[in-house]
Design a protein around this nucleic acid. Sequence first.
DNA 1: CGTGTATGTCATAGT
DNA 2: ATACTATGACATACA
Length: 476
Amino acid sequence: MCSTANYVLPLRRTCEVLATPGRLCGGVSMSNNFSGARSHGAPQDTEMDVAWQELMAITELQEFEVATAGSYETAPYQTMQPMVPMGGYEMAQSHSETPPAVCELSTADTYNGCYSQEVPVRHRLSSHAEAMYGHSDSQRNQRMHPIASHSQPLHVALRAQMNMSGTNQGQRRANAGLSQDLHRHMLWTTHGADDLESDSGLSLGSSPPLASPDNPVSGAPGCKSVTYSDGEPDSMGEHARRAHIHYSMDYQSQAQSYLHPGAQTSYISNQPTSSQPSAVTLSMKQGQTTALSNLHIDSGESSRGSSQYNLYAQPQGSISSPASISRDERRAVSLKIPFQMEKIINLPVDDFNELLTQYTLTDTQLALVRDIRRRGKNKVAAQNCRKRKLESIIHLERELHQLQAQREHLAQQRVEFKHSLAFIKCHLTDLYSEVFSHLRDEAGQPYSTDEYALQQTPDGKMYLVPHATMQKREQC
DNA sequence: CGTGTATGTCATAGT
DNA sequence: ATACTATGACATACA
């Protein structure tokens, strides 16, 4: 067993730091943080390493080391501005894993300067982050309009997402699309409908196909083989669509008359002449925009979509005045559903059922009404779902930016700590040399740093220890 | 004509 | 069991 008493060299007091012979008291301005400091020929280097290890034992620094070593940064955000050097330190120094051997920072001015700038720098960092990402507190608390302030990254993210799903889509469309089309084709063939509805608006399972105006109800009410298709020629060309304008006008004026009784359209010509298509079309657009405004939850939406068709030969690019009614509305008209679409969709279920009891509806009508309700609710749900999705993307982007700013801040702190540590090491070296220079042996001669080293015990006492003894002790 | 976006619809799981 | 909601996937219109 090795004991301290065996190798402690009694020291004659040669300076004020020696309170008792053979021991140095903690009067020296050495911190206990460096209690493990020892000397092996080159005392500075070894002690520095120990001190360095202790400092790096700080959790935050370790974590930062890991984070830095991970190099997980994403390419799109590599363009962040370089870290702002702290005080008089250069960034190049921050990447030097080996502390400077020569203390160039051993002036109090430099040391103080290192921290005196911390607050301003933090402020600068914060401002920098806000400038980069627009994340002032006021903005954080305010609901962002999608695409407004993050249009580019949002679109990038969205595109990425859509592309991802699109890839999947492409694979599925080959199969699912084929099977669905086949399914539809069989359905329509079965029901004798030659007017294929090319989009997915056809209810495949929830209700039977119904009659269309083009294909007048081939069966009596309740006949399961009829279809409520509006006969919308989805698959026909624009020319063919325009050929249906006459029919559509009558059809929709009828829709206006009792689907939206509150928006009677005196401007609608029940018998539009082919010589006045433009004027009639314009009137229809305006009237329907008003009449249908209640149907669309999100008033900002255009009429685009698979179930709303532009039958009125709108000039290309003019989408500001949606001029179509939904397919379900036309279906409702064709089956003479005596309710407003808005009521069908938005009434509470009890009121809705009560409404149904007030009329005698055929199974076909009933099925259509329920499908209209389901589709209407689902449409709103889809709109909300997409809004949430966008907001979620925005939130994640914001979080990403905040984390990047935090990372940058931690990098700054790391630079600060490194330089502080370098300074402390230099200061420690100076103190060590100073203390050692004051020590004298019994003959009044100074101790050689090659033969002795100062060592501090955990209780703060300082000992002058021969190197040979220390080596033995290490072997114990 | 190909591509991206917006929207409606369906299917399905969960509430 | 029924109605409703949420969401992925698909289809379509449009720019």
